[in-house]
Amino acid sequence: MSEKKIRIGFYALTSCYGCQLQFAMMDEILQLIPNAEIVCWYMLERDSKEVEPVDIAFIEGSVSTEEEVELVKEVREKSKIVVAVGACATQGGVQSWTDKPLDELWKTVYGDGKVKFQPRMAKPVEEYIKVDYRLYGCPPEKRDFLYAIGTFLVGSWPEDIDYPVCLECRLRGNTCVLIERGEPCLGPITRAGCDARCPAFNVACIGCRGAIGYDVAWFDSLAKTFKEKGYTKEEIIERMKIFNAHNPKLEEMVNKIFQEVKE
């Protein structure tokens, strides 16, 4: 590790600010202070400066205005590593979970009111700039944040999570709400890392950490399993889309299962 302090920026787009709150409230953040210079993180540092060159830029929220498109581009140019934080930045968030056109959404919320920004459909940060690493979840896990920063601090690269919540259900000794009660648990297609928090309370996973990447989220197999339990195509797609609205494979793979039957 070099003696030079690592420069950190935390930027917020359209979001609830829950991600940065989650991290700002960590006791461990104090350990970081001797090693890091907080260039921009309004929740921690009153004299934050937006947008200065940094080593690691964290971005939370979905890109939902023209101004935010420009902001993320500028952050990208001035940052060595860009980390998308939370369900909004990585997957577009629940605000992406709609098929309605922008005009209609706009009217529903603002009516004829005037605002000083140019709206866009909510999208993940990655739709506009290259993202180097992702912290998933709504809200993201403290453990993931510690792991990523710690690993960056020693000049190494943190691993991505490519396995499903089911693993953590078993490691934790949970029962299985999908097999036992036939609930539409999205655990099998959703990234682990939450220590299977919801299933541990007998609540089926809604997939807030997003579908696993690397083409190993088997929407088709899970749709088949759900279908056998009596769920309709619409129910399945709607549930899977809550946190995966921008996944290019989702609908195609679910449709495949329902087409096979008609023949």
């Binding site: 970081l32 090693n35 510690l146 792991y147 920063i149 601090l153 693993l167």
Partner: peptide, 23 residues
């Protein structure tokens, strides 16, 4: 997996069950 603390110096190694069904 090696997990480094925020002091950029100390940390620990953890192991967990794996599955050959994972990429």
């Amino acid at each position: 997996q090696d997990i480094v603390n925020l002091d950029g110096n100390t940390g620990y190694r953890e192991r967990r069950w794996d599955s050959c069904q994972f990429r």
